[in-house]
Amino acid sequence: MLSRTADNMFWLSRYIERAENLARILDVASRMATLPSAYAGSSNEWESAIATAACTQAFHARYDKATRENVIEYIIASPDNPTSIKSCIDTARSNARAVRTAMTGEMWETINEAWLEMQKVNLRKLDAGRLPKFLSFVKEASLRFDGAAYRTMLRTDHYWFQRLGTYVERADNTARLLDVKYHVLLPEKEAIGGGLDYFQWTSILRSVSAQTSFHWVYRETVKPWLVADFLILSDKQPRSLVSTYRQINEVLDQLSETYGRRGPSQRLAREVIATLLNAQATEIFQGGLHEFLEVFLAQNNALGAAINQQYLQ
Protein backbone atom coordinates (compact mmCIF):
# COMPACT_ATOMS: atom_id res chain seq x y z
CA MET A 1 0.00 0.00 0.00
CA LEU A 2 1.02 3.62 -0.40
CA SER A 3 3.13 4.95 2.45
CA ARG A 4 0.95 8.03 2.55
CA THR A 5 -2.16 5.90 2.88
CA ALA A 6 -0.59 3.93 5.73
CA ASP A 7 0.40 7.19 7.38
CA ASN A 8 -3.13 8.54 7.08
CA MET A 9 -4.70 5.35 8.41
CA PHE A 10 -2.29 5.25 11.31
CA TRP A 11 -2.90 8.86 12.28
CA LEU A 12 -6.60 9.02 11.73
CA SER A 13 -6.99 6.04 14.06
CA ARG A 14 -4.76 7.77 16.59
CA TYR A 15 -6.83 10.93 16.41
CA ILE A 16 -10.11 9.11 16.91
CA GLU A 17 -8.67 7.23 19.85
CA ARG A 18 -7.28 10.46 21.26
CA ALA A 19 -10.62 12.23 20.96
CA GLU A 20 -12.15 9.41 22.97
CA ASN A 21 -9.43 9.66 25.57
CA LEU A 22 -9.83 13.41 25.92
CA ALA A 23 -13.52 12.83 26.52
CA ARG A 24 -12.60 10.29 29.19
CA ILE A 25 -10.21 12.74 30.84
CA LEU A 26 -12.94 15.38 31.03
CA ASP A 27 -15.29 12.77 32.41
CA VAL A 28 -12.89 11.96 35.23
CA ALA A 29 -12.26 15.62 35.98
CA SER A 30 -15.97 16.48 36.10
CA ARG A 31 -16.55 13.61 38.43
CA MET A 32 -13.71 14.56 40.74
CA ALA A 33 -14.98 18.12 40.69
CA THR A 34 -18.30 17.01 42.14
CA LEU A 35 -16.66 16.45 45.51
CA PRO A 36 -17.42 19.24 47.95
CA SER A 37 -14.41 21.52 48.15
CA ALA A 38 -14.17 21.13 51.92
CA TYR A 39 -13.79 17.45 51.33
CA ALA A 40 -11.53 17.60 48.31
CA GLY A 41 -9.33 20.25 49.89
CA SER A 42 -6.98 22.13 47.61
CA SER A 43 -6.71 19.51 44.87
CA ASN A 44 -7.32 20.91 41.42
CA GLU A 45 -8.80 18.29 39.16
CA TRP A 46 -8.99 20.73 36.23
CA GLU A 47 -5.27 21.37 36.45
CA SER A 48 -4.78 17.62 36.43
CA ALA A 49 -6.97 17.22 33.38
CA ILE A 50 -4.74 19.63 31.52
CA ALA A 51 -1.63 17.81 32.66
CA THR A 52 -3.09 14.45 31.63
CA ALA A 53 -3.97 15.77 28.23
CA ALA A 54 -0.30 16.79 27.99
CA CYS A 55 -0.99 20.42 27.23
CA THR A 56 -0.01 22.24 30.44
CA GLN A 57 2.40 24.61 28.75
CA ALA A 58 0.19 25.55 25.83
CA PHE A 59 -2.76 25.95 28.13
CA HIS A 60 -0.97 28.30 30.52
CA ALA A 61 0.31 30.37 27.67
CA ARG A 62 -3.32 31.35 27.35
CA TYR A 63 -4.92 31.08 30.77
CA ASP A 64 -3.62 31.78 34.28
CA LYS A 65 -5.66 29.37 36.25
CA ALA A 66 -7.39 26.19 35.25
CA THR A 67 -11.12 26.43 35.84
CA ARG A 68 -13.97 24.22 34.76
CA GLU A 69 -14.99 26.61 32.02
CA ASN A 70 -11.65 27.29 30.43
CA VAL A 71 -10.43 23.70 30.62
CA ILE A 72 -13.55 22.40 28.99
CA GLU A 73 -13.39 25.05 26.34
CA TYR A 74 -9.71 24.42 25.73
CA ILE A 75 -9.88 20.63 25.55
CA ILE A 76 -13.07 20.46 23.56
CA ALA A 77 -12.84 23.13 20.97
CA SER A 78 -10.27 25.86 21.41
CA PRO A 79 -8.81 26.89 18.05
CA ASP A 80 -5.53 27.45 19.93
CA ASN A 81 -5.38 23.80 20.86
CA PRO A 82 -4.16 21.65 17.98
CA THR A 83 -5.26 18.51 19.78
CA SER A 84 -8.68 19.54 21.06
CA ILE A 85 -11.47 17.03 20.60
CA LYS A 86 -12.76 19.14 17.75
CA SER A 87 -9.43 19.31 15.96
CA CYS A 88 -8.88 15.58 16.50
CA ILE A 89 -12.15 14.87 14.73
CA ASP A 90 -11.46 17.49 12.06
CA THR A 91 -8.02 16.05 11.39
CA ALA A 92 -9.31 12.50 11.45
CA ARG A 93 -11.92 13.38 8.86
CA SER A 94 -9.45 15.20 6.70
CA ASN A 95 -7.14 12.17 6.83
CA ALA A 96 -10.09 9.92 6.12
CA ARG A 97 -11.05 12.00 3.10
CA ALA A 98 -7.51 11.69 1.82
CA VAL A 99 -7.65 7.89 2.02
CA ARG A 100 -11.30 7.14 1.59
CA THR A 101 -10.52 4.27 -0.67
CA ALA A 102 -8.46 2.61 2.05
CA MET A 103 -11.37 2.30 4.44
CA THR A 104 -14.81 0.77 4.29
CA GLY A 105 -17.97 2.77 3.76
CA GLU A 106 -19.02 2.15 7.36
CA MET A 107 -15.80 3.61 8.71
CA TRP A 108 -16.07 6.68 6.54
CA GLU A 109 -19.69 7.22 7.44
CA THR A 110 -18.90 7.00 11.15
CA ILE A 111 -16.22 9.64 10.89
CA ASN A 112 -18.23 11.83 8.57
CA GLU A 113 -21.29 11.69 10.78
CA ALA A 114 -19.25 12.50 13.88
CA TRP A 115 -17.78 15.45 12.05
CA LEU A 116 -21.19 16.66 10.87
CA GLU A 117 -22.52 16.28 14.43
CA MET A 118 -19.61 18.37 15.75
CA GLN A 119 -20.66 21.21 13.46
CA LYS A 120 -24.08 21.25 15.07
CA VAL A 121 -23.07 21.19 18.74
CA ASN A 122 -22.65 24.60 20.29
CA LEU A 123 -19.30 23.87 21.83
CA ARG A 124 -19.15 27.09 23.81
CA LYS A 125 -22.36 26.41 25.64
CA LEU A 126 -21.72 23.01 27.12
CA ASP A 127 -23.04 23.51 30.64
CA ALA A 128 -23.00 20.81 33.29
CA GLY A 129 -26.25 19.44 31.91
CA ARG A 130 -25.04 19.00 28.34
CA LEU A 131 -21.43 18.01 28.88
CA PRO A 132 -22.04 14.33 29.74
CA LYS A 133 -24.15 13.88 26.63
CA PHE A 134 -21.47 15.42 24.48
CA LEU A 135 -18.74 13.30 26.04
CA SER A 136 -20.70 10.11 25.43
CA PHE A 137 -21.25 11.17 21.85
CA VAL A 138 -17.46 11.41 21.38
CA LYS A 139 -16.87 8.06 23.04
CA GLU A 140 -19.59 6.45 20.97
CA ALA A 141 -18.12 7.80 17.75
CA SER A 142 -14.81 6.21 18.64
CA LEU A 143 -16.44 2.93 19.62
CA ARG A 144 -18.35 2.84 16.36
CA PHE A 145 -15.26 3.59 14.35
CA ASP A 146 -13.32 0.89 16.14
CA GLY A 147 -16.17 -1.56 15.68
CA ALA A 148 -16.61 -0.67 12.02
CA ALA A 149 -12.90 -1.20 11.39
CA TYR A 150 -12.91 -4.49 13.24
CA ARG A 151 -16.02 -5.82 11.61
CA THR A 152 -15.72 -4.57 8.05
CA MET A 153 -12.08 -4.21 7.01
CA LEU A 154 -10.20 -6.74 4.97
CA ARG A 155 -7.36 -8.22 6.97
CA THR A 156 -4.61 -6.65 4.91
CA ASP A 157 -1.95 -4.08 5.70
CA HIS A 158 -4.61 -1.33 5.58
CA TYR A 159 -6.19 -2.95 8.58
CA TRP A 160 -2.92 -3.52 10.42
CA PHE A 161 -1.95 0.14 10.18
CA GLN A 162 -5.40 1.14 11.40
CA ARG A 163 -4.98 -1.14 14.40
CA LEU A 164 -1.45 -0.02 15.01
CA GLY A 165 -2.55 3.62 15.28
CA THR A 166 -5.34 2.69 17.68
CA TYR A 167 -3.11 0.63 19.97
CA VAL A 168 -0.14 2.98 20.05
CA GLU A 169 -2.47 5.83 20.99
CA ARG A 170 -4.38 3.71 23.48
CA ALA A 171 -1.19 2.68 25.26
CA ASP A 172 -0.21 6.31 25.50
CA ASN A 173 -3.63 7.26 26.79
CA THR A 174 -3.88 4.53 29.43
CA ALA A 175 -0.48 5.51 30.80
CA ARG A 176 -1.52 9.15 30.93
CA LEU A 177 -4.83 8.44 32.62
CA LEU A 178 -3.03 6.44 35.27
CA ASP A 179 -0.65 9.30 35.72
CA VAL A 180 -3.52 11.65 36.60
CA LYS A 181 -3.09 10.59 40.19
CA TYR A 182 0.40 11.98 40.21
CA HIS A 183 -0.86 15.36 39.09
CA VAL A 184 -3.76 15.51 41.52
CA LEU A 185 -1.85 16.11 44.71
CA LEU A 186 -3.54 14.56 47.64
CA PRO A 187 -4.04 17.28 50.27
CA GLU A 188 -1.55 16.84 53.11
CA LYS A 189 -4.14 16.12 55.77
CA GLU A 190 -5.70 13.41 53.66
CA ALA A 191 -4.56 9.89 54.39
CA ILE A 192 -3.43 7.64 51.60
CA GLY A 193 -6.10 5.04 51.29
CA GLY A 194 -8.60 7.46 52.80
CA GLY A 195 -11.94 8.48 51.33
CA LEU A 196 -10.61 11.01 48.83
CA ASP A 197 -7.81 8.76 47.72
CA TYR A 198 -10.30 5.99 47.15
CA PHE A 199 -12.59 8.28 45.21
CA GLN A 200 -9.77 9.40 42.95
CA TRP A 201 -8.60 5.91 42.09
CA THR A 202 -12.15 4.81 41.47
CA SER A 203 -12.63 7.69 39.06
CA ILE A 204 -9.67 6.50 37.04
CA LEU A 205 -11.17 3.04 36.78
CA ARG A 206 -14.47 4.54 35.84
CA SER A 207 -12.86 6.57 33.11
CA VAL A 208 -11.82 3.40 31.31
CA SER A 209 -15.17 1.77 32.03
CA ALA A 210 -13.40 -0.68 34.33
CA GLN A 211 -14.90 -0.09 37.74
CA THR A 212 -17.07 -3.18 37.71
CA SER A 213 -14.57 -5.35 35.94
CA PHE A 214 -11.98 -4.41 38.55
CA HIS A 215 -14.08 -6.06 41.18
CA TRP A 216 -14.61 -9.10 39.03
CA VAL A 217 -10.87 -9.54 38.76
CA TYR A 218 -9.72 -8.58 42.25
CA ARG A 219 -12.70 -9.04 44.56
CA GLU A 220 -11.15 -6.46 46.86
CA THR A 221 -11.58 -2.81 47.63
CA VAL A 222 -9.84 -0.42 45.29
CA LYS A 223 -6.19 -0.06 46.23
CA PRO A 224 -3.62 1.96 44.27
CA TRP A 225 -1.30 -0.95 43.45
CA LEU A 226 -4.22 -3.07 42.37
CA VAL A 227 -5.42 -0.35 40.02
CA ALA A 228 -1.89 -0.09 38.66
CA ASP A 229 -1.70 -3.85 38.32
CA PHE A 230 -5.02 -3.84 36.49
CA LEU A 231 -4.22 -1.04 34.06
CA ILE A 232 -0.57 -1.86 33.48
CA LEU A 233 -0.10 -5.58 33.84
CA SER A 234 -3.42 -7.33 33.55
CA ASP A 235 -3.97 -9.57 30.56
CA LYS A 236 -7.65 -9.45 31.21
CA GLN A 237 -8.05 -5.68 30.98
CA PRO A 238 -8.14 -4.82 27.26
CA ARG A 239 -6.77 -1.30 27.72
CA SER A 240 -3.86 -2.30 29.97
CA LEU A 241 -0.37 -1.58 28.76
CA VAL A 242 0.37 -5.31 28.55
CA SER A 243 -2.77 -5.94 26.48
CA THR A 244 -2.15 -3.08 24.09
CA TYR A 245 1.48 -4.12 23.64
CA ARG A 246 0.49 -7.70 22.97
CA GLN A 247 -1.76 -6.35 20.25
CA ILE A 248 0.95 -4.06 18.92
CA ASN A 249 3.34 -7.00 18.69
CA GLU A 250 0.76 -9.10 16.92
CA VAL A 251 0.07 -6.40 14.37
CA LEU A 252 3.75 -5.72 13.76
CA ASP A 253 4.32 -9.46 13.30
CA GLN A 254 1.52 -9.55 10.74
CA LEU A 255 3.18 -6.72 8.86
CA SER A 256 6.63 -8.28 8.92
CA GLU A 257 5.14 -11.57 7.77
CA THR A 258 3.24 -9.90 4.93
CA TYR A 259 6.24 -7.89 3.82
CA GLY A 260 8.83 -10.56 4.61
CA ARG A 261 10.99 -8.09 6.51
CA ARG A 262 11.47 -7.13 10.16
CA GLY A 263 12.81 -3.82 11.39
CA PRO A 264 13.37 -1.50 14.34
CA SER A 265 9.64 -1.28 15.19
CA GLN A 266 9.38 -5.01 15.71
CA ARG A 267 12.51 -4.95 17.88
CA LEU A 268 11.31 -2.04 20.00
CA ALA A 269 7.84 -3.45 20.56
CA ARG A 270 9.37 -6.72 21.72
CA GLU A 271 11.57 -4.92 24.22
CA VAL A 272 8.62 -3.06 25.69
CA ILE A 273 6.46 -6.14 26.14
CA ALA A 274 9.40 -8.00 27.72
CA THR A 275 9.83 -5.20 30.28
CA LEU A 276 6.14 -5.16 31.04
CA LEU A 277 5.93 -8.92 31.47
CA ASN A 278 8.82 -8.85 33.95
CA ALA A 279 7.34 -6.05 36.04
CA GLN A 280 5.33 -6.36 39.24
CA ALA A 281 2.95 -3.79 40.65
CA THR A 282 4.64 -3.60 44.04
CA GLU A 283 8.02 -2.99 42.42
CA ILE A 284 6.52 -0.33 40.18
CA PHE A 285 5.25 1.49 43.26
CA GLN A 286 8.59 1.19 45.00
CA GLY A 287 10.36 2.75 42.05
CA GLY A 288 7.58 5.32 41.71
CA LEU A 289 4.53 4.93 39.49
CA HIS A 290 5.04 8.29 37.83
CA GLU A 291 8.66 7.50 36.95
CA PHE A 292 7.64 4.13 35.55
CA LEU A 293 4.97 5.72 33.39
CA GLU A 294 7.34 8.40 32.16
CA VAL A 295 9.78 5.77 30.92
CA PHE A 296 6.93 3.90 29.29
CA LEU A 297 5.60 6.99 27.50
CA ALA A 298 9.09 7.70 26.14
CA GLN A 299 9.37 4.12 24.81
CA ASN A 300 5.93 4.33 23.26
CA ASN A 301 6.93 7.56 21.52
CA ALA A 302 10.09 5.92 20.25
CA LEU A 303 7.99 3.13 18.79
CA GLY A 304 5.82 5.67 16.99
CA ALA A 305 8.93 7.23 15.49
CA ALA A 306 10.27 3.83 14.43
CA ILE A 307 6.99 2.93 12.71
CA ASN A 308 7.07 6.24 10.91
CA GLN A 309 10.63 5.66 9.72
CA GLN A 310 10.07 2.08 8.70
CA TYR A 311 6.72 2.32 6.91
CA LEU A 312 5.18 5.73 6.63
CA GLN A 313 7.66 7.76 4.58
Binding site: M1, L2, S3, R4, T5, A6, V99, R100, T101, D157, F161, L255, Y259, R261, Y311, L312, Q313
Partner: peptide
Protein backbone atom coordinates in the same frame (compact mmCIF):
# COMPACT_ATOMS: atom_id res chain seq x y z
CA UNK B 1 -12.30 2.63 -4.83
CA UNK B 2 -14.69 1.10 -7.35
CA UNK B 3 -11.79 0.02 -9.55
CA UNK B 4 -9.73 -1.22 -6.61
CA UNK B 5 -6.69 0.81 -7.61
CA UNK B 6 -4.47 3.18 -5.64
CA UNK B 7 -5.46 6.83 -5.45
CA UNK B 8 -2.11 8.61 -5.66
CA UNK B 9 -0.95 12.19 -5.41
CA UNK B 10 2.12 13.54 -7.18
CA UNK B 11 4.24 13.11 -4.06
CA UNK B 12 3.45 9.39 -3.96
CA UNK B 13 5.13 8.88 -7.33
CA UNK B 14 8.69 9.29 -8.50
CA UNK B 15 10.61 8.56 -11.66
CA UNK B 16 13.89 6.67 -11.76
CA UNK B 17 15.62 5.79 -15.03
CA UNK B 18 12.46 6.74 -16.97
CA UNK B 19 10.29 4.36 -14.98
CA UNK B 20 7.48 5.56 -12.70
CA UNK B 21 7.23 4.12 -9.20
CA UNK B 22 4.95 4.70 -6.25
CA UNK B 23 6.13 4.83 -2.65
CA UNK B 24 4.61 1.98 -0.70
CA UNK B 25 5.06 0.49 2.75
CA UNK B 26 7.05 -2.27 1.03
Amino acid sequence: DKMGIELVEGRDLFVRANVVYMRTTE
